[in-house]
Computed example of a mutant assay.
Amino acid sequence: MQGVVVGLDLGHSAVKLAYKGKDGEIQKILIPSVTAPATTISDKAASERAMQDTVELDGNRMYVGETALHEGGARNAAGLHHRWIDTITYRALAKNALERVVRDVGRIDSVIVGLPPAILRQRELAVRHLLSSMTDADVRVLPEPGGVSYKMSIDEDGNFIDDAPDTIGVMTIGRYTTDFLVLRGGRWVEKASVSSVGMSEAGEQLRKRLEDRDIQIDHMMADEALRSRSLTIYGKPVEIESDTKSVLSYVASCIIDGAAGAFGDFEVYLEKIYVAGGGAEAMMPELEKIWPHLQLVDDPRFAVAEGFRRYGVARMSIKG
């Protein structure tokens, strides 16, 4: 039986995981990055549904994901800071993600997880130790944008794609940060590994504009409004098109500045610049005005997790 490889992207808005299920099909699961203390749910059907969102940590039962969002609301969402990997929320989300895979396929042989490149050296060991305390699987911690490069250079079965470009730039536009990566001749250029603002900045700007119109929304509603370009309050649609365009344009300018600093003198050598992450589709109209060789990857929100899964499968095949 082929080893079970899990690609794991522990993001501030959602946890994304990719692995092959018992039927050999790739499973992609998204878990909102929200936690709440577990309580008794009287409705039997709802209680049964909540079981997959329940995790025990330090002797306490917690809900994660959709159940936590339903029971506790957006106020229990993950914090927007690099120290969140030290929080109980991060640990609960990671443990629940791994337990879901084990419940489905029985075991895990390899876990590939990412960190923003800017903090990889400082926090790699801590994250590896944390996940290793939750599983007997081999754990590797890689720069998050690297997952995108692996998705574009390795096929679903772990075979390297012969004609994949090896001098590329990557932007992963997440909720908290936009992270950049440059590969030149297939080698990581470490000094290009910097971060800029993420979609939370656009969400916060949108919330402030709506507050000026006496419309109150939480940050998760703002994030969804930016993705869908629509907002419904009390059952009625709210016009946000002009506000959305304005805040997205502002954040795009910040990302462009960040990319210019990251890519620097390497920019003219880049064969492709891949864009992924939960904010990729919203940002593309502004970003593609700047770079003619920009490419939005398929299924951009899962690109990091799926790329890590492919890398893990390839690595396992090489090791034999």
Rank of each mutant, 00 (worst) to 15 (best):
T35S: 05
A77E: 06
L57E: 07
V251N: 05
G198T: 01
L69K: 11
V4H: 05
L296V: 05
I108Y: 13
S230A: 15
G261E: 12
A126E: 08
T87R: 03
R213F: 12
V251I: 15
L183A: 12
A259P: 03
R75G: 07
R100V: 08
D136W: 09
H219G: 07
I256P: 13
V251R: 02
L181M: 10
V6K: 15
I215W: 02
I255K: 04
P145W: 03
K319Y: 05
E241V: 07
V170Y: 01
K245W: 07
W188G: 09
G278I: 00
M152G: 00
A46S: 03
H82C: 05
V34A: 03
D104C: 11
R61N: 04
L69D: 01
S317K: 03
H12S: 09
D162P: 08
G312C: 03
T178Q: 07
M220I: 03
N96E: 08
E144K: 08
Y234I: 07
L131V: 15
L30Y: 12
H129G: 13
R229C: 09
T172F: 04
L231Q: 02
A46K: 04
S317I: 15
D166E: 12
V251L: 02
T40R: 08
H82R: 13
L120V: 03
E211G: 14
D212N: 14
Q295L: 14
M51A: 15
E144A: 04
A282S: 11
V148T: 12
G147R: 00
G21A: 12
R184H: 09
A262L: 04
E211W: 13
L294E: 00
A202P: 15
I29Q: 04
S110W: 15
G198R: 03
A303G: 01
Q52Y: 14
F302A: 09
G279Y: 12
R229A: 14
G235R: 09
E267S: 08
V268A: 10
D298L: 08
F160Y: 06
V64T: 15
N159P: 14
A305I: 11
D58C: 13
V197N: 08
A38W: 00
V102G: 06
A97I: 02
L181S: 09
R49S: 06
E204L: 10
L130D: 11
V197A: 12
K16T: 15
H219L: 11
H293K: 05
R227G: 10
P37S: 03
V105D: 02
E201K: 14
P145D: 00
G198P: 02
Y269F: 13
G169S: 06
D166A: 08
D109V: 10
H293C: 04
D109H: 11
R121S: 14
S193V: 10
F266C: 03
G198C: 13
I215K: 03
A68G: 01
I256C: 05
F263Q: 01
K28F: 14
D9I: 09
K95D: 01
D166C: 07
G264M: 07
V34P: 06
G106F: 06
I85C: 12
Q205N: 05
A303S: 08
L206T: 08
L181F: 10
Y19N: 12
D155I: 08
C254W: 01
V170F: 02
G73D: 00
V141Y: 15
M284R: 01
I256E: 13
E156K: 11
M283I: 10
R83L: 04
G320I: 15
